[in-house]
Simulated assay, not measured.
Amino acid sequence: MYIYLDDSGVINAQGGKFYVWAGFSIKSGYKKLAQLLDPVFAEIKAEQLVHNLKILEAKGNIATHEQRKKVFEVLANWDDLRICYIAVDKSLLNDSHRVFNRDWSGRHREQTENYFIGKVVSRLAEPIPNDTSKSIILTIDGQPKRASESTIRLHEYLSLRINYPKWKKDDYWNNFNIKYDQQLNHSLLQAADFIASFTNEYYAYMEYTSKRDSKKIVSYYELWDILNPKIYHKIIELKNTSKL
Results as ranks from 00 to 15, higher is better:
Lys216Cys: 03
Ile83Thr: 06
Trp104Pro: 01
Leu227Asp: 09
Val50Thr: 13
Arg161Ile: 03
Ser242Leu: 02
His97Ser: 13
Ala63Leu: 08
Ser91Thr: 14
Glu156Cys: 00
Val71Leu: 03
Gly23Lys: 02
Arg98Glu: 06
Gly118Glu: 04
Asp131Tyr: 09
Leu53Glu: 07
Arg123Ser: 12
Ala22His: 04
Tyr208Lys: 05
Met206Trp: 06
Arg212Asn: 13
Leu36Ile: 02
Asn177Pro: 01
Asn175Cys: 07
Asp95Met: 06
Leu49Cys: 02
Leu33His: 09
Glu149Phe: 09
Asp170His: 12
Ala192Phe: 03
Gln48Phe: 14
Arg212Pro: 07
Arg107Asn: 07
Tyr19Val: 02
Asp181Lys: 04
Thr199Lys: 00
Lys27Met: 11
Ser133Met: 11
Glu207Arg: 04
Lys54Leu: 10
Asp95Thr: 08
Lys211Cys: 06
Arg153Glu: 14
Pro129Asp: 11
Met206His: 13
Ser25Trp: 06
Arg153Met: 13
Glu47Asp: 02
Leu37Ser: 02
Asn240Ala: 04
Tyr208His: 15
Lys230Phe: 12
Trp224Ala: 01
Glu126Arg: 05
Lys134Tyr: 02
Lys243Ala: 03
Tyr19Lys: 02
Leu75Glu: 07
Glu57Trp: 11
Asp79Cys: 05
Lys59His: 09
Thr209Ser: 10
Lys169Asn: 13
His97Leu: 04
Leu223His: 07
Asn174His: 13
Gly29Gln: 04
Tyr203Ser: 00
Ala191Pro: 15
Ala58His: 07
Lys134Phe: 06
Tyr19Gly: 00
Lys59Asn: 07
His108Arg: 06
Ile86Met: 12
Ala46Lys: 15
Asp131Glu: 14
Thr112Cys: 10
Thr139Asp: 02
Arg68Glu: 10
Lys168Thr: 06
Val74Thr: 07
Tyr2Asp: 03
Phe18Asn: 14
Ser187Ala: 13
Gln14Ala: 10
Ser96Gly: 05
Asp89Tyr: 11
Leu160Ile: 09
Ser219Glu: 10
Lys230Trp: 11
Tyr157Ile: 00
Thr199Asp: 04
Leu37Cys: 02
Leu188Pro: 11
Glu110Leu: 13
Ala192His: 01
Lys45Val: 01
Ala34Lys: 15
Val88Phe: 14
Lys230Ala: 12
His186Gln: 06
Leu223Val: 03
Leu227Gly: 07
Thr112Phe: 10
Tyr157Gly: 00
Leu36Val: 01
Gln190Met: 15
Leu154Gln: 09
Asp193Ala: 08
Lys211Leu: 13
Gln143Trp: 12
Ile195Ala: 01
Phe41Asn: 07
Ser219Pro: 00
Leu238Met: 10
